[in-house]
C-alpha cells in the first residue's frame, strides 16, 4: 500500500478554523452523555431458541443457521430488540411509511414497456421453451441434526 500514500497527501491550507475559535462557556452541547446503555435487569429474561423454533425458522426463511454461532447471533438480536419493551407505546399508531399523509401515485394500467421477454428470460439459469424451470414441489425439507459448536 506504500505507493498509495504517495498518491494522496494532505495539504494543510491554514490552521483549521474550528481550533482557532474561542469556546463559549455555555455551549449548547452537553458535556456529558445524556443517557446510558440500558440496564439489563429491567429487561425480560433472555430468549433461548429451542430446536423446534430453529427448524421452523429454517423452513420459513429457506436459509440455515449454519452453526451454533448463527443461533447465538439470533439470540443476541432478540436480546437487543427486547429493549423496545422499555418504551411506553400505549395509544401510539404503528407507522408503515413516512408518506402516509400523501396519496399514492397510480399510473394508468397500460403497457408502456413490453416485448422484453428475451431480456427477462436471459437471466434465468434454466428455461425450457419460455418457461422458468423448478424442481418438483410440495416435498418438505429433510429433518436435520442439531447444530454442534
Amino acid at each position: 500500500m506504500n505507493h498509495l500514500h504517495r498518491l494522496f497527501r494532505i495539504t494543510q491550507v491554514d490552521r483549521p478554523v474550528l481550533l482557532a475559535i474561542t469556546r463559549r462557556l455555555s455551549s449548547k452541547v452537553p458535556t456529558e452523555p445524556t443517557w446510558k446503555e440500558v440496564d439489563e435487569s429491567k429487561l425480560p429474561n433472555p430468549t433461548k431458541i429451542d430446536q423446534d423454533t430453529i427448524a421452523h425458522l429454517e423452513r420459513l426463511a429457506l436459509v440455515d443457521f449454519a452453526n451454533k454461532e448463527g443461533i447465538r447471533r439470533l439470540e443476541a438480536a432478540i436480546r437487543f430488540a427486547d429493549q423496545m419493551f422499555l418504551v411506553d407505546t400505549t395509544g401510539v399508531e404503528p407507522m408503515d411509511s413516512v408518506l402516509e399523509d400523501r396519496e399514492l401515485y397510480l399510473r394508468d394500467d397500460v403497457v408502456t414497456e413490453g416485448n422484453c421477454k428475451d431480456d427477462i428470460l436471459r437471466n434465468a439459469g434454466k428455461v425450457v421453451e419460455d418457461y422458468f424451470v423448478a424442481p418438483p414441489g410440495n416435498i418438505p425439507l429433510p429433518k436435520k441434526e442439531e447444530y454442534d459448536s
Binding site: I120, A124, F132, V133, A134
Partner: peptide
C-alpha cells in the same frame, strides 16, 4: 429460478 445464482440440488423446489 428467474435470475441470480442457482444451486444444483434439484431433488425438490425447497
Amino acid at each position: 429460478l428467474e435470475f441470480g445464482h442457482r444451486g444444483s440440488d434439484h431433488s425438490s423446489t425447497e
